[in-house]
Amino acid sequence: MFAPLPAAAAWLHREARTGFEVAYFRGDDRGVLIEGCATAVEDGQPWAIDYRLRLDGSWHTRSAHITGRYRDARRTVTVHSDGLGRWQVDGAAAPEFDGCLDIDLEASALTNAFPVHRLALPVGDAADAPAVYVRAGDLATTRLPQHYRRITDGPGQRYDYRAPTLDFHATLDYDEHGLITTYPGLAERTA
């Protein structure tokens, strides 16, 4: 069980990209509303991503409105879920995401908190948590297989994380609120 979310959190993005992310949290009778922004330079290309995410009381992603600003364009994508693993992207059914309960924004260190809250794994247990993955560079959506294994407990938690299609493996550290503090190769929590 995690402590209540703070009013805001921030991460410094480094190594894979140089940038910053800020997120604001508001709980209500429907769950959690998160509004945030990530700005970065990655592979020499600057981008800014604004997001508004709605999670239900069980930490299932219910909606996401994401806007990306780039040198030559502005893009927007809207994603909705019934909370049971059926999705729509920009109003069209997206059966390729059936079974996903989370959204994962490539631009964000925050979104890896969603499955950790939702799964509430005991130490030693593991689970697959496929997500609707939204790429930072063009807001394209793809299915992202993910695997979480909880490896420690304490004031915070530590997970072995794998995203095989991205050939990515890391140990992720979370604070008492269930927010990432250390995301190797990507981000460190600063507030």
Rank of each mutant, 00 (worst) to 15 (best):
D72F: 07
L53V: 10
F168S: 15
T165S: 14
G178C: 07
L166N: 06
D138E: 08
A10D: 13
L166W: 08
Q45Y: 13
Y148K: 03
V79A: 14
H177D: 02
D125H: 10
R17G: 07
T78M: 05
A163S: 06
A109T: 02
G85Q: 03
Q157P: 07
A8N: 09
V134P: 04
D72W: 09
A40Q: 14
S108E: 00
I151F: 04
D90M: 00
A40L: 11
T152M: 06
G27C: 14
T18N: 13
D56I: 10
D43F: 12
D125I: 01
A38R: 06
P46A: 08
R158Q: 12
D98P: 04
V116C: 06
D82N: 04
L101D: 01
Q45P: 02
G156V: 04
P95E: 00
Y70V: 03
R75Y: 08
A170T: 07
R149K: 11
L5M: 05
E42A: 15
E96W: 09
T61A: 11
T18P: 00
E188C: 12
E35L: 09
P164V: 05
Y159F: 15
L12K: 11
R69M: 10
H65C: 08
L144S: 03
T76P: 00
D50V: 14
T152H: 12
E188Q: 13
F2C: 01
A129I: 01
A73M: 03
D125R: 12
P122R: 02
A16P: 05
Y161V: 02
H65M: 07
Y159M: 09
L110M: 09
H80C: 08
L55G: 04
